[in-house]
Design a binder for these strands. Sequence first.
DNA 1: TATTGTTATACTCTATAACTATA
DNA 2: TATAGTTATAGAGTATAACAATA
Lengths: 157, 157
Amino acid sequence: MPSIQPRPAFLLAQVGAHAARRFAERVAVLGVAPSDVGVLRMILTTPGRSQQSLAEELGVVPSRVVTLLDALEGKGLVERRRNPADRRNYALHLTEEGARVMAAVWELGAAHEDELLAALDAGQRAHLTALLEAVAVHQGLTAGVHPGYQGPPRAGG
Amino acid sequence: MPSIQPRPAFLLAQVGAHAARRFAERVAVLGVAPSDVGVLRMILTTPGRSQQSLAEELGVVPSRVVTLLDALEGKGLVERRRNPADRRNYALHLTEEGARVMAAVWELGAAHEDELLAALDAGQRAHLTALLEAVAVHQGLTAGVHPGYQGPPRAGG
DNA sequence: TATTGTTATACTCTATAACTATA
DNA sequence: TATAGTTATAGAGTATAACAATA
């Protein structure tokens, strides 16, 4: 009896993937990918942090952080500052341009949310948020970290 | 003023990606990927359909369907039957084994949903489903088709 | 010897374009 | 000439493992 009725788990994956895709399209006009936004946000939140700490929180391998940061540094959005006390690691900081981009992302995020949830009124949005938050907490998801950093799984039935 | 407060759009993407990942882990024990499940489900729903029609509904290029089906045929889950009337196209059908795998996916799906929504009671689940369905309909999402088939966008902030 | 970051390499996923066979 | 499907190829994205510099 395979179904056509909406299964909440599938709807969640479907709508979530759609949200991620639309967000990617929006931030693309700023010249960044969603993965870049995640990294920029973490550096904005905790300036001076190391690449290792980023890798751990994102749940990716350190070499991937190198690639991510090479691109962001190349675009002039992030700075790697040598730590004089321990010259093995870098202290990561946003440049002014990086901060500007994050402000723009903030604007786009609001528009994105409005478009995505256009079908719901304010009360319904609040209710949805509360339900999703309960699920996220119960599932042990790290606030602000998208599991998309962690590899393969894509399309789904 | 970049936030830490839960943004519903981000929560949706985050929880959705988590759901997709957990589902992928579960069906992996059956030897299939989520993308395979989507294809199998479409063939189960409309037996005899062509590869072209699959490509269109999934929003992917026909050559990708070839790859997907080669794997499923290799595992003995799908059969390509020549259409005597028009020998250019195939009529796709599940094998008995393919039908068995889909039945097993069905079981796993129920367990998956229970685990994913463990934080919510029955009423809350129904409410969440209704809200998500409203969003999905308004966003023009095709019932049962995961946007993950359509390419790049991954991690996100 | 341990840690931070980098490079070299390989693997997976997916699309593009050229191709075959039918029609 | 048009359509269904296939193959060959290339490009992203990501991980593994070996490596360099510093501690």
